[in-house]
């Protein structure tokens, strides 16, 4: 480094990334926040936020969004736990293959995966035609264009995050603990309930919070699998921005959504850290 001084080298190396960050992230985020504070008559004001919180309809949308987020998070936990546990209990190529199968679908566009579910859940879809040809139902079940279809699509989209969060904490479990439990006479179920499950609590929590926050800000799946009948915060924002073109209101809703996410993350993390969780892990 004879030509460049140390400081110049750092500046040159970081400049492109920082210019990008400043121009395409910090500046637009700031100006978006200002837009959300613009009142219809011009000038600054909290009108858009007031409009949201004084209308029962919007509270309903917020409630439905949180409900769908919570159901999806719990569903990914219930379905993902066996997969993560199986990953942790296997080794070598089996674990490699499972990891690959967990991650790969998640890397393909959400539009494609939702299209697959349209084919599975539709009136003439795989499930309905199978059930009808078996004679179990006479008319197709309504599996699509409602909350159910939306949640199925969400579970498929985000279960990979849950499995990876769970696996990360299950991998850290010391196998000697299970051996000790076994020597002391604990059966399989007891070893799971008293050793594995409590030890994976951090993974469970971070998985739940992560999936919840990803779900409530997603709008592609509710549009494709929920249809016009399912209105959540993210689709409401999308409509206000791209269809109604009410940018102050649209941006205000998206900041309320962001605040909800932060609130849930903080409350859940705090609540569990101050209870038994803290005693066990000495955080």
């Amino acid at each position: 480094m004879t030509i460049f001084s140390r400081r110049a080298a750092i500046a040159v190396l970081l400049a492109p990334a920082l210019v990008l960050l400043l121009g395409v992230f910090i500046l637009p985020m700031f100006s978006m926040f200002v837009t959300s504070l613009t009142s219809p008559e011009g000038g600054l004001g909290l009108d858009s936020y007031a409009r949201f919180f004084t209308d029962g309809y919007y509270w309903g949308v917020l409630g439905k969004t949180a409900t769908i987020g919570a159901i999806t998070a719990v569903a990914t936990l219930v379905l993902g736990y066996p997969v993560a546990l199986f990953m942790a209990r296997s080794d070598g190529w089996v674990r490699g293959v499972i990891t690959f199968v967990v991650i790969v679908p998640h890397l393909v566009s959400v539009v494609i995966r939702n299209f697959g579910w349209l084919m599975v859940l539709g009136d003439n879809g795989v499930i309905n035609s199978a059930l009808m040809s078996l004679g179990w139902i006479q008319r197709p079940l309504q599996l699509l264009y409602n909350e159910f279809g939306t949640i199925v699509g969400f579970v498929d989209s985000f279960i990979a995050y849950m499995i990876l969060a769970l696996a990360a904490s299950l991998y850290n479990e010391d196998p000697n603990l299970a051996r000790a439990g076994s020597i002391l006479g604990a059966g399989r179920l007891r070893r799971f309930l008293t050793i594995t499950l409590p030890l994976s609590l951090p993974g469970i929590l971070s998985g739940l919070v992560l999936v919840f926050s990803l779900v409530i800000s997603s709008f592609i799946t509710p549009i494709l699998l929920g249809g016009p009948r399912v209105t959540v915060m993210a689709t409401l924002t999308y409509q206000q921005i791209l269809i109604t073109l009410d940018w102050p209101f649209g941006t205000a809703i998206s900041f309320i959504l962001l605040a909800t996410t932060l609130l849930v993350v903080t409350v859940v993390t705090r609540a569990f850290e101050t209870k038994r969780y803290k005693e066990v892990f000495g955080a």
Binding site: V83, F86, V94, P105, R113, F115, M119, V120, V126, D156
Partner: peptide
């Protein structure tokens, strides 16, 4: 290396994984 043996956990895990690749198996 241990021989692969049947496990309920594995069966459930495989079913869930089939669910996640189902869109591709159909498309």
């Amino acid at each position: 290396m241990t021989r692969p043996k049947f496990s309920w956990l594995g069966l459930v895990a495989v079913c869930v994984l089939i669910g996640t690749v189902l869109p591709f198996l159909v498309i």
